[in-house]
Amino acid sequence: MSGGTALVIDGLEVEFGRFRAVDRLSLAIDYGEVRALIGPNGAGKSTVLNVVAGVTPAKAGRIVLDDTDLTGLSEAQIARKGVRRKFQKPSVFEVLTVRENIELGLAIPAAKAPPGRIEDVLAMVNLGDLADRLAGTLAHGQKQWLEIGMVLASDPKILMLDEPVAGLTDEERQRTAALIRALRRPDRAIVVVEHDMGFVEEIADKVTVMHEGRTLFEGPMSRVRQDARVVEVYLGR
């Protein structure tokens, strides 16, 4: 499973009414890599995640995970294929406890999960002490981690994180970066949508810059800042 291509996005088109949010976008994400999806507001980054997760239907194009075509499957079916996604706005179930949230993230009854799995995940996201607190009572940063824990619990092949450090303090940001680095595994691909370039530099192996629904640049982080078109899009206007 390790190495090789995990997720292929092929000729994706998405329209909202007359507005074309994603325009013939093609991407290939490999196992073992952390891929950052960056670009200005409205570039279509979140839309791509929504389409992969099955929330937004595509007008044209295909999404393939390993050899399985995900196009047209429901959100739940896609999730069960091993795709998990963290939303931009932290969305945890506030009236359930932290432990129950993680348990829901397993997607199978806790009794059938590997023993100690919930505790492992709780420890991984640093919420072991708060396991019986109601999720609604957590601080913003803790909610972000809980949500990462929820999407992590089922050991997904594809992990999509939409702005995981938005609204976090510097210290929380550092811990989140460390967490994501720790999550990198040969049999997992991680996609991060983020505005914070410093954060992206810390975690990403490879960067895809989107602009107006298309790929503007793709390559290692080190070369992004030298790319003339990227500079123009980010700074030139």
């Binding site: 909202f16 009414g17 007359r18 979140s46 839309t47 929504n50 937004t56 939303f87 931009q88």
Partner: peptide, 8 residues
């Protein structure tokens, strides 16, 4: 006649 938009 509803145009679909961003959900979140």
């Amino acid at each position: 006649f509803t145009a679909k938009g961003r959900r979140r």
